[in-house]
């Protein structure tokens, strides 16, 4: 996020950090106990699904907090139009976790914008741990920024041709004050306040740089995909749970480092 500020814990309880091989690469959002919404390009087909870690209840990337939970990925569903009609079109992914999220004051789901959402006169925010300057500075704490929506015709005009920004996309950004999303915010949310209920209207997708005033950030338009999201949430089986015998073995395995930590803390 460029031009934003540190977010308070619990202010964006649906924010997710997607890690790949131990590093934050993208954002995402909690949409229910088992499902995360993110960008398809964060989960490109050549990536190993087992190398992903999903963190919820996180504000400072350096520390696991009291509300932080960690999850492995069970399944990734990329939208069938991803990269079909546009190099980054259909840039949306559903990520099913191996186990369920425990909701708390700091970990809650966001609402998905319905197909007929009216985006006039709404206040919208983006959040993420992406770069805070084009020079590559990364934040420790989750950043938030208020961004105005930009109409599709204006955005198409700014990008030079209608085909560059398609109807499954949405543009937002404060082009006068250089407040926008940047690399590492991908997959994260654009959320708007509708009478104290927060609806996700965008998924951070792409843009031409982060600080060129004439090129606002482009998001996947969530309302365009909401029926697809709803279909897979309702029709995908829950992940199979470990057998009791296996659970006992896992418990025995993790108890060793926990015991070691307890001993070390006494030294």
């Amino acid at each position: 996020i460029v031009g934003g500020m540190d977010a308070l814990e619990g202010k964006w309880p649906w924010q997710v950090s997607v890690h790949y091989r131990g590093f934050h690469i993208c954002g995402g959002t909690i949409i229910d106990e088992y499902w995360i919404l993110s960008a398809a390009h964060c989960f490109d087909r050549d990536k190993n699904i087992e190398a992903f870690d999903i963190y919820v209840g996180l504000v400072d990337l350096r520390f696991v907090g009291n509300h932080t939970q960690w999850f492995e990925v069970n399944k990734v569903i990329l939208h069938p139009t991803y990269e079909v009609y546009h190099p980054v079109g259909g840039d949306i992914a559903l990520v099913q976790l191996k186990s369920r999220i425990v909701f708390s004051d700091s970990v809650l789901p966001v609402c998905i914008a319905p197909p007929d959402v009216n985006l006039h006169n709404v206040t919208c925010w983006s959040t993420g741990w992406g770069l805070i300057s084009p020079q590559g500075r990364v934040p420790e704490k989750l950043q938030e920024v208020r961004v105005p929506l930009i109409s599709l015709p204006l955005c198409q005009l700014l990008y030079g041709h209608p085909s560059h920004v398609m109807s499954d996309m949405l543009c937002a950004g404060d082009i006068w004050n250089v407040r926008t999303v940047c690399e590492g915010d991908s997959g994260g949310p654009l959320v708007c306040d509708f009478n104290h209920t927060w609806l996700q209207v965008g998924v951070v997708s792409w843009g031409r740089g982060c600080t060129y005033p004439m090129y606002p950030a482009v998001y996947a338009r969530v309302s365009y995909f909401s029926k697809w999201i709803q279909y897979y949430r309702e029709h995908t089986p829950l992940p199979s749970q470990p057998l009791p015998a296996l659970s006992l073995m896992v418990g025995a395995t993790v108890s060793v480092p926990v015991t070691m930590l307890a001993v070390l803390s006494m030294l």
Binding site: P13, T68, W70, V102, S106, L108, V254
Partner: peptide, 27 residues
């Protein structure tokens, strides 16, 4: 970078909580 740690100390609420609501309100 956060470390891999499957912990869940969070206070459980009804899993069917309403979406889009948070417990702290901005001004």
């Amino acid at each position: 970078v956060a470390h891999r740690r499957p912990l869940s100390e969070a206070r459980a609420l009804n899993p069917h909580v309403a979406c889009g609501h948070r417990y702290i309100q901005g001004k």
